[in-house]
Amino acid sequence: METLMIILSGVLVTVATYLILSRNAVRIILGTALLTHASHILLMTMGGFGGTNVPITGENGADYVDALPQALILTSIVISFGVTAFFLVLSYRTYKELGSDDMYILRGRRNE
């Protein structure tokens, strides 16, 4: 199970890296979103899949799933949402101002 999840996150990282290296703004943002997914899965896996119960006390027995990765992931989801939203608006604005969302065209002048 763990190995499978690790491989899954590896695939996601590969795709994300490839997208980040591309020229188009939207693809880059998609890449960052994918990278977040990958890191969430990785975090989850690192916590292990040991427990059987939802981490809420007083419900069923004491064999809880590890709660710490969950808390970290929760933080991460929210922050990555903020970053993605910001990126999207930034590229929207860039396109509006500069007329392109292609990184090659946005490069600027030589020897600046």
């Binding site: 190995t3 690790i6 491989i7 695939v11 990282v13 590969t14 890296t17 591309s22 990785l42």
Partner: peptide, 23 residues
């Protein structure tokens, strides 16, 4: 883009190897 693909595969492999070893 072949160079990019190689780099991406490299990063992915690095993550997988690291994660497996850590695990």
């Amino acid at each position: 883009n072949i160079p990019n693909l190689i780099i991406s595969l490299g990063v992915g492999a690095t993550v997988v190897l690291t994660a497996l070893s850590v695990h």
